[in-house]
Amino acid sequence: MTIKRIQSTCAYCGAGCQIMFTVDTEKNKILEAEPAPGRTNDGTLCLKGHYGWDYLNDPQILSKRLTKPMIRKGGKGSPLEEVEWDEAVRYTAGRLAEIKAKHGPNSIMCTGSARGSGNEANYVMQKFARVTIGTNNVDHCARI
């Protein structure tokens, strides 16, 4: 059982608290979250910091971790069917290209994410919208 202690930033509110996680890399499980001496949190954490990480082992209380790409093959309203990644990517890229061709780049809307995805993902998404799609239709939930 190999125990590692890794410091990371909380993904809940904007305070950006530093958390020291105890992780069992062998079992690939998080064991505990303790406060770390971050600039904003100064060695303290709130309840979400202390106890907000066990959703990762998918307890299925409210909803379910997404683990496989899915497509509604039968169109709107039909059930989602699990597919492989290449099929999902091909299907998505194909539909986007088709819509871009038919209605122009500005008919596509992309969103960044103010939550767990991180800055790099947001940068790539806005670059995808502006470069690949060719539109400035990119936003995120800062305004809601």
Binding site: I99, T111, G112, A114, S117, A121, M125
Partner: peptide, 10 residues
């Protein structure tokens, strides 16, 4: 008009 909506983390 908008025809496609690529939603990430929202």
């Amino acid at each position: 008009r908008i025809h496609a909506y690529y939603i990430m983390g929202e």
